[in-house]
Amino acid sequence: MLSYVFKRLLALIPTVAVPMVLLFVLLRLTPGDPAAVILGENATATEIAELRTELGLDAPMWQQFLDWLARMARFDFGESIFLHAPVAELVLSAALVTGQLALISMLLALLIGPALGAVAGATRSRALDRTMVVGSAVGVAMPTFWLAILMVMLFGVTLQWLPVAGFTPITEDPVQYVRYMALPCLALGTLEAATLFRYSRNGVLDAKHQPFVATARAQGLPERTITRSYVFPAALAPLVTVVGLSLASMLGGAVVTENVFSLPGLGKLLLTAVERRDYPLIEGCIFFIAVAFVLVNLLVDVVAATLDPRIRLEAKE
């Protein structure tokens, strides 16, 4: 197990390096000059040229690439062109917010989704099952921004229970923190719950008809025991993978949710960075997202292997 994890961590290097190089190339191919963006519409050509020299953008591409490579190898992401702060600091503080949003939303989704899915799959009541399936279909089909805006209108504007947008760290004011985080987490969590519901319902329906259920019946085990300790475990183990993938993509920044609620998270930071052609900041964000993605996937594989003995962890040679 340990050597497997170590091998996977080694594999992290190429997995992160490839998107980073691609990113370097794509950024420089994209139209739009950071110097021009920074200086605004009224800048003269000379001013722009001076700034380009200052930012090192006028060097030949191969030289820029080598410099960049040397900096990446030292994890030196430099300073944000626009925000004039170290990229590492900006990314980490944004990732902290996104991390909280992702974890709380996923926790909410895990509390609601699988339980309802298991009930829908196991129940004999067609009406109950149908109702829940329709509900989840709405949840899966609904775009995040729409649900988010509806919630803002209801709880923020009409009822005025919660603030519309913003963020306070939990260390500063826990009550305000909860008030700010409630809506984004609820929006993201509800939609994720709908997805988890579908997977767990299908899992239960599938497991119900497996031959091992007939075996348990032939052994005379009560239906309740069969459902609880034979059907559910077989149905829910594959859910780990789904949860992991969702969590990884949430950690990459819930771009829409963060923008609707003005949460200073990774998604919002990345969007701003792209709009302003803030190369170092974009690179820092993508680097972090890539690493987070790989690490979460590794975690998922380890957890899945402990839950399902059929999965053996083997590093591919």
Binding site: P211, R217, Q219, G220, Y230, A234, D308
Partner: peptide, 20 residues
């Protein structure tokens, strides 16, 4: 079932629970 009557399934691999 399982006390007075027993049953041996045709496909042993799928007749047993995969994670128990």
């Amino acid at each position: 079932a399982g006390r007075e009557m027993g049953f041996v399934f045709q496909e042993p691999m799928s007749a047993l629970h995969p994670t128990k």
